[in-house]
Simulated assay, not measured.
Amino acid sequence: MAIEQELQLDYRLNEHVILIPAGPDHAAMLETTVFQPNGPGPFPLLIINHGKDPGAPGAQPRDRFYHMAHAFVERGYVVIVPMREGYANSTGKFADHGCDMTANGYGQAKDILDALNYAREQPWVDAQHIVIAGQSYGGLATIALGTQPLPGVKALLNFAGGLKDQTEGCDWKDELVSAYANYGASAKIPSLWMYGANDSLFGPELSTRMYQAYTLAGGQGKLVEYPAFKRDSHGMLASRDGEQVWLPETEEFLKQAGMPTKLLYDVPGPPQPPKTDYAQVDNVDAVPFLTDNGRRAYREYLGKLTPRAFAVSPTGAWTWAEEGEDPESRALNTCNAKSSKPCKLYSIDDYVVWNGDKLDAADKAALTASVSTVSKPGADKGAVGGGSIAPTGN
């Protein structure tokens, strides 16, 4: 099985992880990622709220929304991404209200409010200039939170907000429409809604129904229905290429809300290995160490979406990663977990970065057996796949 390990903190964005007290008597602690510009602040604040992956919430990795955080830090914001109770390394209990979508939104909003109240008290936060955003389940919770008086919060951003429940007897679509109508009746803050044409969970018909229910009930919002994005627009916000979709609309909306949007800092992105002249990226036979199964995997990798990365090891282990955050580190981490020798990146996006030696015929003949497996997490996280040579004893 592919194993994705924790990504390294990015010092360029002063990324660090804190614990925020939440829940009854503040007995729970929310694992929260913080990104911020250099200096003491105070800075305007963006809170980004995550969705829910399939499976147990505790198995969900820490969300970072790195690309959105990067764009906002460059504009002088501090960004926090709290993992709600029961998710990732947060303590407390995940609140599940089944098919009651209205209650689900309100339940998750409690943790967001705790994170907001904590942030307001920090000297590095400008408590009068706050934006709250959410993706998927986090979008539903963000709109639910907007029913409360939130001093200093100028805008809400809803990216593909909703929750799908396929439990027998659950009419989850109608439940979502009812939930947004409920929130709209008490809404107090302007909101921007962004849904893509090929969203696998909340397509145009449903997103329009939800938005209309919200605004007809009294909610103030703007709906942006953008064209199809890659294979599934539901993961647009987590994609490196999603910025060209969400940023222009978001900047315009925030200007109208009285929030800053001017670029203040030039924060470099993570360094990339340089391109080499080892081979063309589509030259499958040039990739070192791979057996026939590995070469089939590399051909499959060439059809993956960018950003993407492919890693190999002298043991014959290989891994690809596509989309999501930092596919280079994800590919290396997963490959190293399979291999007794260090892995190296072979290619990134559409070019080769390998700078090692080519294998001769004897080397290739020594690699004859291959075992491979593929694991694909949710679309908003990116995908990863890998395999390795069957291990031998020493």
Rank of each mutant, 00 (worst) to 15 (best):
M1W: 14
M1Q: 15
M1A: 15
L30C: 04
V34N: 08
F35C: 08
Q36E: 12
Q36C: 12
P37D: 10
P42V: 02
P42Y: 01
P44W: 07
H50Y: 10
D53H: 11
R64T: 02
F72H: 01
V81Q: 07
Y87R: 07
A88W: 00
F94V: 10
H97A: 11
A109G: 08
K110D: 15
D111Q: 05
Y118D: 05
A119P: 00
D126G: 02
A127Q: 13
A127N: 10
V131Y: 06
G139D: 06
A144I: 06
T147G: 15
A155T: 09
F159C: 07
L163T: 06
Q166T: 15
E168D: 14
D174I: 00
V177A: 03
S178E: 14
A187Y: 02
I189S: 03
G196F: 10
A197N: 04
N198Y: 09
P204V: 01
P227W: 00
S233F: 10
S239H: 08
T250H: 00
E251Q: 14
E252M: 12
F253E: 05
P271E: 07
T276D: 04
V281P: 03
D285V: 00
A286L: 05
F289Y: 13
A297G: 11
R299V: 12
V312E: 09
S313W: 05
P314G: 04
G316P: 00
E322I: 08
E322M: 11
D326M: 09
S339P: 01
S340E: 14
N355D: 12
A365N: 04
L367V: 14
S370V: 12
S375T: 13
A379S: 14
G382W: 02
G386W: 07
G387Y: 04
